[in-house]
Design a protein around this nucleic acid. Structure first.
Length: 248
DNA sequence: TAACATGTTTGTCG
DNA sequence: ACGACAAACATGTT
């Protein structure tokens, strides 16, 4: 989505903002403001508007679309010389926030380091989990430790690393932290490779995607044919191959 | 119908 | 103070 914004919106001027959901902030006064840049931190999209920053978080079901076709549009940014960018979000968990540009670092300060585009060094990743005692998978969802890994990414990263989601954090070796850093990185790469074909279309559970274990309970592991298991950790579904991710 | 859902924060409890 | 976890957000899908 950051790529989409860079390709489509950066360098253009906002001509009008149509807010269709009153829970989002009023953006009428952004008419005439140029979009200077677009970036991303964790899963937060950041539009640089010069004096302020616009933060968009898609959460569960939010998507960015260009032009018409949105099913549940919440806010529409009209641009000079281009189709509008629409924040389409049926479940309405997504957020839009306006902050002065100077407050941007503070607004993102709670986030742990990025596991992509540079894979985290094993020692750095291990450091992120200092103090954690419980199973690795729920800890991986904590944005303070590592940024941008959600429920799908945690299962997919652990599978690629060959580490059981039940493994207790203090028992992981340096080699396993390295494998996990590589596993998370590979998951992001695989996701972007598919999204790259059409930057507007996101991947969805149950749809066409490259999930190796997520949402595949009872199906054969692509590596060893063992049935993928679904369990529940901290109230969230976890998927794993009990053979490839053996141990505790 | 009931159960479950891709993300993240918040409050509660130990 | 810190870690762990259930609940909450609002709606759609199985």
């Amino acid at each position: 989505m950051a790529r989409l914004l860079r390709a489509h919106a950066v360098g253009r001027r906002i001509t009008a903002v149509e807010r269709l959901d009153a829970r989002l902030p009023d953006c009428e006064d952004l008419a005439g403001v140029p979009i200077v840049g677009a970036s991303r931190r964790a899963k937060i999209l950041i539009l640089d508007l010069g004096a302020e920053a616009l933060l968009l978080h898609p959460r569960m079901t939010g998507q960015l679309r260009v032009g018409e076709g949105a099913r549940s549009p919440r806010i529409r940014f009209h641009l000079e010389g281009a189709e509008p960018v629409v924040f389409d979000d049926p479940r309405r968990f997504g957020t839009v926030e306006r902050i002065p540009l100077a407050q941007l670092p503070a607004a993102l300060a709670h986030l742990g380091p990025e596991p992509w585009p540079q894979p985290l060094a094993a020692a750095v990743l291990a450091d992120c989990f200092s103090g954690a005692r419980g199973p690795i998978k729920p800890a991986l969802l904590d944005q303070h430790r590592v940024a941008g890994v959600g429920n799908i990414g945690a299962s997919e990263g652990l599978f690629r690393a060959g580490i059981s989601p039940e493994r207790l954090v203090p028992t992981l070796s340096l080699g396993e932290w390295a494998a996990l850093a590589a596993g998370i990185w590979a998951w992001v790469e695989a996701t972007l490779a598919e999204a790259g074909a059409d930057p507007i279309t996101l991947l969805h559970a149950g749809g066409e995607n490259s999930f190796l274990v997520y949402d595949r309970a009872g199906e054969a592991c692509f590596t060893c044919e063992t049935r993928v298991v679904r369990s529940r950790q901290a109230g969230r579904s976890t998927y794993f191959c009990p053979r490839c991710q053996g141990g505790e």
